[in-house]
Design a protein around this nucleic acid. Structure first.
Lengths: 314, 314
DNA sequence: TCTTTTTCATGCGTAAAATGCATTGATTAT
DNA sequence: ATAATCAATGCATTTTACGCATGAAAAAGA
C-alpha cells in the first residue's frame, strides 16, 4: 500500500522545553519558574519562545508583565503533564530495577490515617528496607481516587474503601477500623465501657465540615439507629474535633486508630455496642499502570503486615 | 558497559535520546538506526551510551558486533514508545489546532476496503478539504483493533465491526455490505441474476488463508445454510481470489464493494438470495484518547457521507 | 588460515544550542 | 513621581551534539 509523507521538520520538541513549559504554566510566572528550575530567567524565556515557534502556536498571552496560558496552552499543558509523567515513571522504574529496596514510594493518604496508621506501617517497612524513601501527600477523599487515576501517585491509603464499582482503580482492604465515641470526661456516659449509639441521640455532635466522607458516615450511622444528630460545631480536621470535645463543646465519633496513643486531655474513648459501625481501611492503585518496583515492595509488605496484624488481634 | 565510577550526572533524559533509543531498539542495529535518523552512527552510539549511564542500567547487551535489548531494555522500550506517543500526539494536536483542515489523518484499514471503499471516502473528503493529508496503513483484522488500543493510529476502518463487548474501542457502523458470489463465466449458474447459497454446495471454493476473519465468515455462512464448503485453493488476498476464480479454479464469496468497478475478466457477480449473508463495515477509535482535530473532521465527514449514501440508495 | 567486511565504540575538532549576565522597555506598586 | 518588578533580547561563554576518522572485535568470505 501507499503512505503519504509528513513534511520533515528539523527542530524537534525536547523534554527540556516541556519541563520549562510546565513550570511556567503552573505558575504563570517566568521568573519564579526559572528559580524553581535553578536556571536564569532569560533561559526559560527563550526556551518558551522556541517551543512556541516550533509548534507555530502561542501558548501564553503576554498581558503587561504577566504571562497567561492560552486555551490551546491549557490543552497542551494537560497532555504534556501526562506525557512527562509516563516518561518519568518509566525512568524511575528502570532506575529502581536493579535495587528496588533503595527506591522511592509515592503514596497519598487521608488526614485520618496521618497520625497513626501510615506512620506505623512506614516505620515497620523501613525496619526491613532502611534505604527506601517516601514521598507522602495528604489529600481529601476524592483527590485520593482522582490522583491515582490521573497518575499523580500510584498508591493511596483510603478509608472507607470506595465501592468496587469504581472501575478506575484497583482496591484492597487492609483492615476494618471501629468507630468509637469520644466524650468529655464529665459526660454522664463517660464511665461506661461501651454504649449504644442511640444513647447519644440528645447530645450535641461535633463533626467534620460538609464534603468530608467521614462526616456523612457519622450522620448516616445515626440515621441507621433512628435519630438525626444535633450538630453543635464543625472542625476542619480530626484534631480540631478532639479539641472541641476536650473543651466540652460536644461529643464526636471517630475511627479508633486516630485515638491510638493519642487520647486528648479531659476526654474519654467509649466503644459502641453496634458492631456494624465501622469503616474499612484499604489501599487503591491504578488499573491502567503498573506499580513501580519499590512501590510493589511496599504494597506486598502492607498486605502481609495487616494480614498478620489482624490475625494477631483475633 | 561497565560502571566502575558511577558518577551522578545532573543531566536529565532528553527526547533525542529516547528517539534514538527507540530506533536502535526496534532494529537492534545502531548503524541502521543512524541511517533512519539521518545522523552519524557515532552520534547515536554516544547518545545510547549517555542514556544508559544516566539511567544506571544497561539497556543493550553487546554481543560481538551486534546489540540486543536486555529484559529491562524491553520494558523501557514499551514505556518510552507510549510516552513519546503521548507527546507526539499532543504536538500534532496543537499544530493542527489553528488549521485542522490542513492537518493529517492517520487511518488503518483491512485489505478488503483498500480498493474501493477507502479511496472513495478519501477522494470525497479531499474535495472538501484539499489540504488534508493522509497516512494510510493496511493491517490485518486483529492488528486494526490492537493498533487503535495501543495508539499506533486513532482511526481504523474495519469489517466486520467487532462485537460491542470489546470495551477497548469505540465503534460505529457506516454501512452494511452484501456478500455476493463470484463465478467463472462458464459456470452453470452464471446467467442467473441471483441464487441460493445452497446451490453452490458442490462447487469448489477459493478462500482466504486461515486466520482471516473473512474466511471464517464464508465458511460459517455455508454452515448456516447446511453444508461444508469444499476448499480447492487459498489466495492471500481478495485480488488473488479473483484471479483464481477467473482461471476457473473455483468459485468465491466476497464483499460486494470489492467488485465495484472491478469485476475480473471471465467472471460474473451473482447476488445471493439470503439477505442475512452480509457484513458490517464501520470505524473504530480509541476509548482512552481523543481524536486529533483533523481526524475528528474526517470522522464527522465519514458519518455524514455514509448516512447520505445509504439514504440515497434506498 | 588469512583477508575483507561489518559493526560498535571512541578521540578529537567543529558546529550548534543552551546558559548567564546585563540591559531594555513596559507595567505595576508605593 | 519614583521605585520595583517582570518578560524579552543582545552578546559572550559554556555546554552539548555532531561528523569524521580510526580502533578493536567479530563475522564472512576466499
Amino acid at each position: 500500500m501507499h503512505f503519504t509523507h509528513e513534511k520533515e521538520r528539523e527542530e524537534k520538541v525536547e523534554l527540556r522545553q516541556i519541563r520549562y513549559f510546565i513550570e511556567v504554566a503552573k505558575r504563570e510566572h517566568v521568573t519564579e519558574a526559572a528559580d524553581a528550575l535553578h536556571v536564569a530567567q532569560s533561559s526559560v524565556s527563550r526556551q518558551i519562545f522556541n517551543l512556541e515557534s516550533e509548534l507555530g502556536v502561542d501558548l501564553f498571552i503576554r498581558e503587561g508583565r504577566n504571562v497567561k496560558l492560552t486555551p490551546i496552552g491549557k490543552i497542551f499543558l494537560e497532555r504534556m503533564k501526562h506525557g512527562l509523567n509516563v516518561i518519568d515513571e518509566a525512568e524511575r522504574e528502570v532506575r529502581e530495577y536493579l535495587a528496588p529496596e533503595k527506591g522511592t514510594i509515592r503514596i497519598a493518604f487521608p488526614i485520618s490515617l496521618a497520625a497513626h496508621t501510615l506512620p506505623t506501617a512506614i516505620y515497620a517497612f523501613r525496619k526491613q528496607y532502611p534505604d527506601a524513601k517516601f514521598i507522602l501527600k495528604q489529600a481529601r477523599y476524592q483527590e485520593l481516587i482522582e490522583g491515582v487515576v490521573k497518575g499523580d501517585f500510584n498508591l493511596a491509603m483510603i478509608a472507607p474503601l470506595p465501592p468496587s464499582e469504581e472501575r478506575k482503580v484497583h482496591r484492597k482492604i487492609l483492615f476494618t477500623d471501629n468507630i468509637v465515641a469520644l466524650l468529655p470526661l464529665h459526660h454522664p456516659l463517660a464511665k461506661k465501657d461501651s454504649i449504644n449509639l442511640r444513647e447519644l441521640k440528645d447530645d450535641p455532635f461535633v463533626v467534620l465540615p460538609e464534603g468530608y466522607v467521614f462526616r456523612d458516615m457519622v450522620i448516616n450511622a445515626c440515621h441507621d439507629y433512628g435519630f438525626s444528630p444535633t450538630i453543635s460545631f464543625e472542625g476542619d480536621d480530626i484534631d480540631a474535633l478532639k479539641g472541641l470535645v476536650s473543651a466540652g463543646l460536644g461529643i464526636a465519633l471517630m475511627p479508633e486508630v486516630t485515638l491510638v496513643d493519642n487520647i486528648p486531655n479531659s476526654t474519654v474513648k467509649v466503644r459502641l455496642n453496634e458492631h456494624s459501625v465501622k469503616r474499612t481501611v484499604g489501599i487503591i492503585w491504578p488499573t491502567q499502570r503498573a506499580l513501580l518496583p519499590t512501590e510493589k515492595l511496599f504494597f506486598d509488605f502492607l498486605n502481609e503486615f495487616y494480614t498478620r496484624l489482624v490475625h494477631f488481634n483475633q
